[in-house]
Simulated assay, not measured.
Amino acid sequence: MEDAVVTFRKSSYSAQEGQCVEIAGSGGHVVVRDSKNPGGPVLAFTTDEWRAFVHALKSA
């Protein structure tokens, strides 16, 4: 996945202070990174894992 070119996006609800995560779609996965460290590591989730995560957040 390191070789993939992806376009990360940040929520429009995020403050401009840079303390956010950014997400991108990449080959059937959702990748997440720290907006303060765009060259750093990313977490990768399958789309099903991401949907479950978002659903759990909305249900909390």
Rank of each mutant, 00 (worst) to 15 (best):
M1D: 10
E2M: 10
E2H: 05
E2Y: 02
A4W: 03
V5F: 07
V6S: 07
F8S: 02
R9H: 10
K10C: 14
S12K: 10
S12M: 12
S14I: 08
A15S: 15
A15C: 06
Q16F: 05
E17R: 07
G18F: 00
Q19G: 11
C20F: 02
V21H: 04
V21D: 05
V21G: 06
I23P: 04
G25T: 04
S26V: 14
S26H: 01
G27D: 14
G28F: 00
G28V: 03
H29N: 12
H29L: 12
H29S: 12
V30R: 03
V31T: 07
V32Q: 01
V32G: 01
R33H: 04
S35D: 11
S35A: 12
K36P: 03
K36E: 05
N37W: 02
N37S: 09
N37I: 04
P38Y: 07
G40C: 02
P41D: 09
V42Q: 02
V42W: 02
L43C: 02
A44W: 00
A44R: 07
F45T: 03
F45K: 02
T47D: 13
T47A: 11
E49Q: 15
E49A: 15
R51W: 08
R51T: 14
F53K: 01
V54N: 11
V54G: 11
H55W: 06
A56P: 00
L57W: 08
L57Y: 06
K58H: 11
K58Q: 13
S59T: 13
A60S: 14
